[in-house]
């Protein structure tokens, strides 16, 4: 496996769950994507924008890449270098998706893009397996913002 990079963090699903704990007090938007997935790439700018524009409103975006582990260096790293994403990127260090998809949401078939919302108390409050426009994304997150 590749060495940890400044461009991304490499986590198993359990490690990711643990990592998210530190963001209690914020609404965390966890977007599952891959460089392979066209609608994912199309909606990435909206997640970047939300992360920036709603920073003050205590929203934190985490982009979880499910790219093939064998192609992190050849595909994901060049993509990240080119895009210079501001949101945090996590690479999921898992082999069999069947082992972790249910742990994200039991209703999820594994189709990406998919987005999970964790509220400021660390509770999973919403999940959607579909692409968003910026307005749709705002509407998805809005109800869970703190007053």
């Amino acid at each position: 496996m590749q060495a940890q990079s400044s461009l991304y963090k490499l986590f198993t699903f359990s490690e990711l769950e643990q990592y998210l704990q530190q963001y209690q007090g914020k609404v965390v938007v966890v977007n599952f994507w891959s460089t392979w997935c066209r609608p994912c790439i199309e909606e990435l700018p909206y997640f970047e924008r939300l992360n920036e524009e709603w920073k003050e409103r205590k929203v934190k975006v985490i982009l979880v890449s499910v790219d093939f582990l064998s192609e992190i260096d050849s595909r994901l790293v060049p993509f990240l270098q080119k895009k210079q994403l501001k949101s945090e990127v996590v690479v999921l260090n898992e082999k069999d998706p069947n082992e972790w998809i249910d742990r994200v949401n039991s209703q999820w078939s594994g189709a990406i893009p998919a987005t999970l919302l964790v509220d400021s108390a660390g509770k999973r409050v919403a999940f959607a397996a579909k692409p968003f426009t910026y307005q749709e994304l705002q509407k998805f997150v809005q109800p869970f913002l703190q007053p």
Binding site: P39, I101, G110, P113
Partner: peptide, 9 residues
């Protein structure tokens, strides 16, 4: 039954 990453229809 299994799950896998794939493209949304």
């Amino acid at each position: 039954e299994t799950k896998a990453i794939g493209c949304t229809i």
